[in-house]
Amino acid sequence: MAQSIAHPVISPADAGTPVTPLPLRAVLPWAVFMGTLMLVLLYFVGAEQGATSVFSGAGVHEWVHDGRHLLGFPCH
């Protein structure tokens, strides 16, 4: 009969490495950058066509067409 051996979970505190929190001043610029990037991507996937389009033609629409359907945006 085989016995199961439980491996102990070693946290950084148990290993002697102190865990220090990141200051908000270091995280905030990256959070703002990622939020802005996500809003720009959401615009291109969700609204870049028709009357609100920034670029003429259907090039952007064709590049994000499958993403539109995946996220539930109507485009036909």
Score class of each variant (00 low, 15 high):
residue 33 F to V: 15
residue 49 Q to T: 03
residue 48 E to Q: 06
residue 54 V to A: 08
residue 21 P to T: 04
residue 23 P to R: 14
residue 47 A to R: 11
residue 35 G to E: 02
residue 19 V to E: 01
residue 62 E to F: 07
residue 23 P to I: 00
residue 25 R to A: 15
residue 36 T to Y: 00
residue 37 L to F: 12
residue 30 W to Y: 14
residue 37 L to G: 13
residue 18 P to A: 10
residue 41 L to W: 03
residue 53 S to L: 05
residue 30 W to H: 15
residue 44 F to W: 05
residue 45 V to A: 01
residue 25 R to G: 12
residue 67 G to R: 02
residue 66 D to P: 05
residue 20 T to V: 13
residue 32 V to M: 12
residue 24 L to Q: 14
residue 52 T to M: 11
residue 59 G to F: 10
residue 34 M to Y: 09
residue 65 H to V: 09
residue 53 S to Q: 15
residue 20 T to Y: 15
residue 61 H to C: 11
residue 53 S to I: 03
residue 55 F to L: 15
residue 18 P to L: 09
residue 36 T to P: 02
residue 50 G to A: 03
residue 66 D to E: 11
residue 45 V to M: 02
residue 26 A to R: 11
residue 46 G to C: 01
residue 54 V to E: 01
residue 30 W to Q: 12
residue 25 R to P: 09
residue 47 A to E: 10
residue 65 H to I: 09
residue 34 M to P: 04
residue 38 M to W: 09
residue 60 V to W: 08
residue 35 G to C: 05
residue 60 V to Y: 04
residue 67 G to M: 00
residue 47 A to I: 04
residue 60 V to L: 10
residue 35 G to M: 08
residue 37 L to M: 12
residue 19 V to K: 00
residue 24 L to K: 14
residue 56 S to G: 12
residue 43 Y to I: 03
residue 39 L to M: 14
residue 22 L to F: 15
residue 61 H to L: 15
residue 38 M to C: 11
residue 36 T to Q: 05
residue 53 S to M: 10
residue 26 A to C: 07
residue 31 A to M: 12
residue 45 V to R: 05
residue 38 M to E: 08
residue 49 Q to R: 13
residue 63 W to K: 11
residue 21 P to Y: 06
residue 67 G to D: 00
residue 18 P to G: 03
residue 56 S to C: 03
residue 60 V to I: 13
residue 31 A to R: 13
residue 66 D to Y: 07
residue 64 V to Y: 03
residue 32 V to F: 06
residue 24 L to S: 14
